[in-house]
Amino acid sequence: MFYSPLPMHIPDGFLSVIVSILLWIVSIGVIGYSLRRVNQDLNERQVPLMGVLAAAIFAGQMLNFSVTGGTSGHLMGAAIATILLGPWAGVLVLTCVVSIQALIFQDGGLLALGANIFNMGVVGVAVSYFTYTSMQKILGKSQWGIFASGFAAAWLSIFIASLCAALELAISGTSPANIAIPAMGGIHALIGIGEGLITVGALAFLYASRKDLLDKTSTKTVKGNLVWGVGLVIAFALAIISPLASSHPDGLEWVAEQKGFLDIAQGPLYNIIPDYVMPGISNEAVATIIAGIIGTLIVFGVALGVAFSRRRSTT
C-alpha cells in the first residue's frame, strides 16, 4: 500500500554499472545546479518549502481512485510539482521523493537511484515543464488551456520517463529493447491517463481556490522559446516513434513480407547485420532508433548546458 504504484523504480541488479554511474553523474549535476537555483530564488525558505512539499507528494501517491476490476489510478506528481513550483524546485522535490522511496522503502535500488532520479526527477520534470509552458503559449491562460496543458504534461512525463527506464534496461542487457520498450510504454501510456486526470482535478481545485499559485509559475518561463519548442517536438516524436518502431521488432522483415520479396531477400537481409548492435536488438531499424534517441538526449543535454552557461554569464 505504501510503495509507489508505478513499476518504474528500477531495483539494484538490473542496470549495468556503467549505466548506473553515468546516470548518477548526470543526476548529481542537475541536482547541484537546482540546489543553487532554488537557493537564489527562495533563500532560507527553501528547506521548509521543499521538505514539506516532498512529503506531500509522497503522501499524495497514496490517493487513488478505482478504475476497473481492482486496478486503480494513482499520482506520481512530477507534473503537479513542476507546475506549482517551477522546474528547479520540481527536480529537488522529486529527487527527495525518489530517494526516500529507495532509502526507506526499498522502492528502487540505491545504486540504481541515480537512474531513477534521472527518469522521474530530471526527465519527468523537464518533460512536464516544456510541455506545460509550450502548450500554455499556444492555448493561452484560459481555464481550459491550463487543464489541457496539465493533462498533456502529466501524461507525457509518465510516458517518457517509462521509455527512459526501458531504454536503460535495454542498454544494460537486462531486457530486450523490442520487448521492454513497448511493454513499459504500453503500461505507462495507460497509467499516464490516471496521472493526467488526477493532475487536472488538482489544477481545477487550485484554479478555483488559489489561482495566484498557477499564475506565478507561468511567468517564470525560461528564455529561448525556439529551443524548448524544438525539444518538445523531439519529445513528441520520441513518444510516437519508439513504441511504433519497436512494436514491429522485425520491422525490415515485416516490410519485406508485406512486399512479397521475403524469399528473395532472406539471405542478404540477415547478412546486413551479422552481430547484435545492442543486447536484445536484432534489427537495424530498432538499433538506429535507440541510437537516435541517445543522440538526441546527448545533443539536448549539451544544448541545455550551453544555454545555462550563457545565461549565467549574462546575468
Binding site: 512539499l53 506531500a56 507528494i57 503522501a59 499524495g60 490517493l63 487513488n64 481512485f65 489510478g73 499520482l75 503537479i80 506549482l84 490516471g194 486526470l197 488526477i198 493532475t199 487536472v200 482535478g201 488538482a202 489544477l203 481545477a204 481545485f205 487550485l206 481556490s209
Partner: peptide, 12 residues
Amino acid sequence: AHVTGGMAGSLF
C-alpha cells in the same frame, strides 16, 4: 478521477 484530483490539490 476529478474528485481524487481535488483531494490531491487540497493536500498540496
